[in-house]
């Protein structure tokens, strides 16, 4: 697994680097969405999670969930357009799971994408993602996870 300044950035995921979110196409065609380890480090411990309701249609880069940490409230922006097919009950009862396992148990929503093939082209993966996060961390004065 790739690591940028101590933050895990798995190379097999697709990222919107600006919004600090990842997407993973699953075998059943759905897309799992989550926050990156870098986003978690900037936020601190996440203490609340309010996802959009299952069935809701959400455009790319719009909020699919709202989270709170250190008295800050902010959106998680879905990297692809689609409808919410699942929210994470484990995270609802323990929002800190997002920090503990951002690419696993701490996923944010699962979406049914409306145009994965088209939209995923604008997401970054592999080495491109790693270098984009390196540049982002540099511009944001980030020391490390």
């Amino acid at each position: 697994m790739a690591s940028v300044r101590g933050c895990n950035i798995p190379e097999d995921l697709s990222y919107n680097v600006d919004n600090n979110v990842w997407a993973r196409r699953e075998a059943d065609g759905t897309v799992t969405v989550g926050l990156t380890a870098y986003a978690c480090s900037l936020a601190g411990e996440i203490v609340a999670y309010t996802p959009k309701k299952a069935g809701k249609d959400i455009a790319k880069d719009k909020s699919c969930a709202t989270v709170e940490s250190g008295k800050w409230v902010g959106p998680v922006k879905t990297p692809v357009t689609g409808s919410v097919v699942a929210i994470n009950d484990a995270v609802a009862s323990k929002p800190g799971l997002i920090n503990k396992d951002p690419y696993g148990e701490g996923w944010v929503v699962k979406m049914k994408p409306s145009d994965w093939d088209g939209e995923s082209k604008s997401l970054k993966a592999g080495g491109d993602a790693v270098s984009a996060f390196e540049a982002k961390m540099d511009s944001e004065g980030f020391k490390g996870c």
Partner: peptide, 10 residues
């Protein structure tokens, strides 16, 4: 702000 760390900004 010089940092993106939310706690540091607060």
């Amino acid at each position: 702000f010089a940092t993106a760390d939310m706690l540091a900004i607060a």
